[in-house]
Design a protein around this nucleic acid. Sequence first.
DNA 1: TGCAAATTGCAGAAATTTTGCGGATTAAAT
DNA 2: ATTTAATCCGCAAAATTTCTGCAATTTGCA
Lengths: 153, 153
Amino acid sequence: MQLKMKHDPITQKILRALTDNGRISNLELADRVGLSPSACLRRVVALEKAGVIRGYRAVLDPAQMGVGFLAYITVGLSQHTKAAQEAFEHAMARAPEVRECHNVTGAVEYLLRVEAADLAAYKAFHTEVLGTLPQVQSLTTYVVIGSPKDERA
Amino acid sequence: MQLKMKHDPITQKILRALTDNGRISNLELADRVGLSPSACLRRVVALEKAGVIRGYRAVLDPAQMGVGFLAYITVGLSQHTKAAQEAFEHAMARAPEVRECHNVTGAVEYLLRVEAADLAAYKAFHTEVLGTLPQVQSLTTYVVIGSPKDERA
DNA sequence: TGCAAATTGCAGAAATTTTGCGGATTAAAT
DNA sequence: ATTTAATCCGCAAAATTTCTGCAATTTGCA
């Protein structure tokens, strides 16, 4: 994430540290950013209240969670009406395999990130879910064979 | 993430809770999953050691971090040699704007997620970084104008 | 059925988080 | 230039939480 000079140096250090390890103890965090624990905690709480820190989450290992297949899919719609978009987005919201659904500009309307147990599970999703949506005109799958960088994992 | 029945029900609850809130206290977590604090903590530690839980991270608000522009980019390489791939991946690893770099199958080799302060910053990255890499043959930008679903945010 | 390993709950010890308070620094206003 | 107000800091005590033995219970398997 871009640390643009919008926050002071200590805040930047705090955010960087918590992005790297969201469960670092306040004691160590304070030590690392050069602040007393109390002052450090107050800043963290303020950042949370201000919404700069939206929350914390555990990062799980996909393989051990039964996710053995990952793909990105571009989706072109047959109609560009608001109704068609909403229908498609609702379908995506309901599909557990879809972890991300982005509305994009360009030759296609949507970009999806899809996680499935394996190829068979993906195929089922592709044909039974995406293939049955009337709004969908084109589908292009990009199977992920590796992620050299994934800071959002 | 798909909670396939690979773990017992309590483990599933633990993982779900920590995915939702990675900083929940062990006391509350234990209470929520119906276990004593000590037993619960031991499970969490075991999950961490087993690598099921890879870590924890704070989720920040992009807008407040100065990220006002988001795009996905497909990248085609001119050569498919290992050297070319490594060179490209190293360049991506160094670029702070690149939050994700996926190696994919299909008409292109890579899919990037790029975050920038604004269009100008993106343009600078596009031309000065991507445009100067000798391995890069084709670039297609998909500007994100909305994310109806983003469970990895 | 019986043994061995794994898991649990309890309770205390150790460590961390959280809060009150006085003082210092900074900014704004007079 | 001086005063006032607003922050922000560090210290220290209080409140919670995490962490660790240990005995008891449960689970898995021969």
